[in-house]
Write a protein that binds this DNA or RNA. Structure first.
Length: 634
RNA sequence: GGGUCCGUAGCGCAGUAUGGAUAGCGCGUCGGCCUUCGGAGCCGAAGGUCCCGGGUUCAAAUCCCGGCGGACCCGCCA
C-alpha cells in the first residue's frame, strides 16, 4: 500500500504553515519561496520560518516584520497549527498535538510496514555495489561498500524508485589472472574458499614481486635506484615472512612452483590474453577460481542479509561480446583517441575542454585504453559495462571507493566522447572513504586485511556473552546473539558519513551501547515487551498525550517519510541511522519517565499503548532499511 | 609538486550543501536511580580558541582567501 506523500501528517502540517505564511506575505505584496527550519528547542515551537532574508530584501526590520506576519496569521483560520509566535525574527509554529497525535499514530498503525513509502517514481535505477575482485574474501573495507550499497538501495526503493542491485564480477582483471596462476600450481582448497584463495593470491603476488625485484637489482647500476629497490624488497620480504607463518606448506609449495618458471609475469600476462580470447584452458582455470571465491562471497553476504538481483560477468558483457573492442574503435575515430608510447589512449583534458565539463578538477590524466600487450584495462571495459547497464535502467549508481574517483570521471568523459553525455549525466559515482587498520592500509595484494567473517564471528561472540546474562535457552542465545552482533557491525559501518575514513578498532565496530545497533534493537524489544502484555485494546484518548516526552516522539515519528525523502534525494544513508538512534533515545526517555500499562487513566493508557505500537512499527521499518534484524527479546 | 576531501570536548561522531535562536550526541570521568512496563536504560555534573589567520555579512562551525595537519589520487592495478 502506498499513500501519496502529501497525505502524510508531517507534510499536511508543513503545507499548512507554508500557506499561512504565503497568505500573510501576499497581503504585503510579497511572493517568495518559503524555507523552514527546525527550532533548536520545543519552546520555540515545532517549525520555524526565519524572516531575515525576506525582511532584508524588502527593507524591513526582521523583528517587526515577523510580528506583522504573526498578527496577520492570528486572524486566519487554522487547522493543525495551534498558534504562531514571533520571536526575534522568527515566525514559530506550534502544532496542535491534540489533533496531530491522533492522525500520526493512526496512520502509522494502519500503514504498518508501508509507513514511510513514498510515491512511485517510475524510474529504474541500477545500484552496483560490493563488486569485490574475486581474488580474496570480503574484508571490513569492502563490507563498508556492501552495506552502504545495500542501505542506499533500500532507501531508494522505499522512496519509490525501482531498484536493481548488481554485483560486477571483475574476472578479466590482472588480479584474477595472478590468483588463477597461483591456484593452478596448488589446485586444492583448505578451509573457507575465498579465505584460502585470498591467501594464495597474496602469497603468489608476494613471491613474484620478490623474484622480480631481485632480478631488477642485478641489472641496475645507479646506486640511488638500487637503494630504492632494496627498500621495496625489504618490505616484500617482511610480508613474505608474515604470510609464510600462516601456512608454511602452501607457501613453500608456491615458491617451488613459481621459481620453476623463468618469467611468471609473462605466464600471467599470457593467461590473461588467452582468457580475453576465451580460450578453453584459460576459461577453465579462471572460472573455476572465480566460482570458488564467489561462493565464499555468497556465504558471507548471506550472513549479513545482502542479496543481489544480478551477478554480471565482466568477461561476458564487455569482452567476449566484442563490446569493448567496438568502443575502442569508436573512440579511436573521435578526435580524442590517439596512439601514445605504443598504446591507445584517450585525451581526457581535451574532452573536458570541448564539452566544458568541470567535475571539480582542473585536469584529468589521459585514459590508457589498452595495455601494450593488447589486453584491455578495467576502465575501458567499464565503458562497455556502463552502456550495458543503461540499456536496463534510467539511472546508474556505482558504489566505489573514493580512490577510484579519477577513473570514474574518465569513464564519464569517455561517454561524452562517444556522444553519450546524456548517460554520463545520469551516472553517479557514490564514493566512500576507506576503512584503515591502525597505521596501515588494508591491502589484498599484501594479505593485510581483516575479513568481514572474522569481524562477524567476534561480534557474535561478544553478543553471546551479553545475551547469556539474560537468556538461558541455548538455541535462543545463538539466534539472538547473531542478530545483535551483526546489527552492531552493520550500524557501525553505516552510521559514519561515507566521506570520513574509518580507522578499524574492535571497540568501535562492536559497540553495544548507546548510538549503536544493539541500542536501537533494545528499544525495539522494550516496545515489544509492553505490547505483548496488552490484553485488550480499548478507546484511546489521544488528547491526553500532552507531555514533552510524548510530543517529541510523535513529531519524530511523523518525520520518518521526510527522512526517507531526504536520504533518497541526497543519497545519505547515514541520516537514517541517526534517525533510528534519535527515535530510540526519545522512546527510552518516555519509557523511563512515564507509565504505559500502569497509567491510571484508561484513555491515556490506551493512547500510550498505541504510541508504543507506532514506535515499534517505525523502528522496525527503519531497521529494515538499515538491513538490521529485530529480535523480540535480547 | 598539483588536485580532491577532511579537521568540532581526552577519544569517537552529528551539525557545514541552502549562513540564523543557548554548537548537539556517544564513549570515558565524577555523582545518583533496580519493592514501579526488562538497567544494553534513565537522571545529574565536569569537559569547547568549532585547526590557525584574515575577509564577506545585521549574523560564520557553515561562505571566500591564505596557512598548518591528515587521508586519497595524479597513463598501461582496480
Amino acid at each position: 500500500m502506498r499513500i501519496m506523500m502529501k497525505n502524510y501528517p508531517y507534510y499536511i502540517f508543513e503545507e499548512e504553515c507554508k500557506s499561512l505564511i504565503e497568505k500573510a506575505l501576499s497581503e504585503e505584496g510579497i511572493k517568495e519561496e518559503i524555507k523552514f527550519e527546525f527550532p533548536p528547542s520545543p519552546k520555540y515551537g515545532d517549525l520555524s520560518f526565519p524572516v531575515f532574508n525576506i525582511a532584508k530584501k524588502y527593507g524591513k526590520n526582521p523583528e517587526d516584520f515577523s510580528k506583522i506576519i504573526v498578527s496577520k496569521i492570528n486572524s486566519y483560520e487554522k487547522n493543525i497549527v495551534e498558534r504562531v509566535e514571533a520571536i526575534g525574527g522568527y515566525v514559530n509554529f506550534f502544532i496542535d498535538y491534540k489533533k496531530y497525535s491522533k492522525i500520526v499514530i493512526e496512520s502509522i498503525i494502519s500503514l504498518g510496514k508501508d509507513y514511510g513509502n513514498l510515491d512511485k517514481k517510475d524510474i529504474k535505477i541500477i545500484v552496483e555495489h560490493t563488486s569485490v575482485n574475486p581474488v580474496h574474501p570480503i574484508h571490513i573495507g569492502s563490507a563498508r561498500n556492501a552495506i552502504i550499497g545495500d542501505v542506499l538501495s533500500n532507501i531508494l526503493e522505499k522512496a519509490g524508485y525501482e531498484i536493481k542491485r548488481h554485483f560486477y564480477i571483475d574476472d578479466v582483471g590482472l588480479q584474477v589472472a595472478q590468483a588463477a596462476y597461483g591456484y593452478s600450481k596448488i589446485r586444492k582448497i583448505e578451509g573457507k574458499k575465498d579465505h584460502f584463495i585470498g591467501y594464495i593470491y597474496a602469497a603468489t603476488n608476494c613471491i613474484i614481486n620478490i623474484k622480480k625485484l631481485k632480478e631488477e637489482i642485478k641489472g641496475i647500476s645507479n646506486e640511488e635506484k638500487i637503494k630504492e629497490k632494496i627498500k621495496e624488497l625489504d618490505e616484500w620480504t617482511s610480508i613474505a615472512n608474515e604470510l609464510r607463518l600462516k601456512n608454511e606448506k602452501i607457501f613453500d609449495e608456491l615458491i617451488n612452483e613459481i621459481y620453476k618458471s623463468k618469467d611468471p609475469e609473462k605466464d600471467i600476462s599470457e593467461l590473461l590474453i588467452r582468457y580475453e580470447k576465451k580460450e578453453e584452458d584459460a576459461v577453465k582455470i579462471i572460472r573455476e577460481l572465480c566460482e570458488l571465491v564467489i561462493s565464499g562471497f555468497r556465504e558471507t553476504l548471506d550472513r549479513i542479509g545482502i542479496k543481489f538481483d544480478s551477478w554480471d560477468w565482466e568477461s561476458e558483457i564487455t569482452c567476449w561480446s566484442g563490446a569493448t573492442e567496438d568502443i575502442i574503435n569508436k573512440l579511436m575515430e573521435t578526435e580524442f583517441g590517439k596512439i601514445d608510447r605504443g598504446t591507445i589512449i584517450l585525451d581526457c583534458n581535451k574532452i573536458l575542454e570541448k564539452f566544458k565539463l568541470k567535475f571539480g578538477v582542473k585536469e584529468i590524466p589521459p585514459l590508457v585504453l589498452k595495455r601494450s600487450d593488447g589486453t584491455t584495462l578495467y576502465t575501458t571495459r567499464d565503458i562497455a559495462y556502463t552502456i550495458w547497464k543503461f540499456q536496463r535502467a534510467d539511472k546508474v549508481i556505482n558504489v566505489i571507493s573514493i580512490e577510484q574517483r579519477i577513473p570514474q570521471i574518465q569513464l564519464k568523459l569517455a561517454l561524452y566522447a562517444l556522444n553519450l553525455g546524456n548517460l554520463a549525466e545520469r551516472l553517479i559515482h557514490f564514493g566512500y572513504e576507506l576503512v584503515h587498520l591502525p597505521g596501515v592500509k588494508m591491502s589484498g595484494r599484501r594479505g593485510r586485511y581483516i575479513t568481514l567473517d572474522e569481524v562477524l564471528d567476534e561480534a557474535i561472540r561478544r553478543a553471546y556473552y551479553e545475551v547469556s546474562k539474560r537468556i538461558s535457552n541455548e538455541e535462543e542465545r545463538r539466534k539472538i546473539s547473531e542478530i545483535i552482533g551483526i546489527g552492531a557491525v552493520k550500524y557501525a559501518l553505516i552510521s559514519i558519513s561515507p566521506n570520513k575514513p574509518i580507522v578499524f578498532t574492535w571497540e568501535r565496530v562492536l559497540d553495544f551501547e548507546k548510538n549503536s545497533g544493539p541500542f536501537i534493537q533494545y528499544g525495539y524489544v522494550r516496545a515489544c515487551n509492553i505490547i505483548a502484555k496488552v490484553e485488550k485494546e480499548e478507546e484511546a484518548n489521544y488528547e491526553s498525550l500532552n507531555s514533552d516526552y510524548e510530543k517529541q516522539i510523535i513529531m519524530k515519528l511523523s518525520l520518518f517519510p521526510k527522512i526517507i525523502n531526504d536520504a533518497a534525494e541526497e543519497l545519505r544513508p547515514e541520516i537514517l541511522a541517526e534517525y533510528a538512534n534519535d527515535l530510540t533515545s526519545l522512546f527510552n526517555l518516555f519509557y523511563d519517565n512515564l507509565p504505559v500499562l500502569k497509567a491510571e487513566d484508561k484513555g491515556l493508557r490506551n493512547a500510550r499503548i498505541k504510541l508504543v505500537k507506532a514506535v515499534k512499527i517505525v523502528l522496525e521499518n527503519v531497521l529494515s532499511i538499515l538491513g538490521i534484524n529485530t529480535p523480540e527479546k535480547m
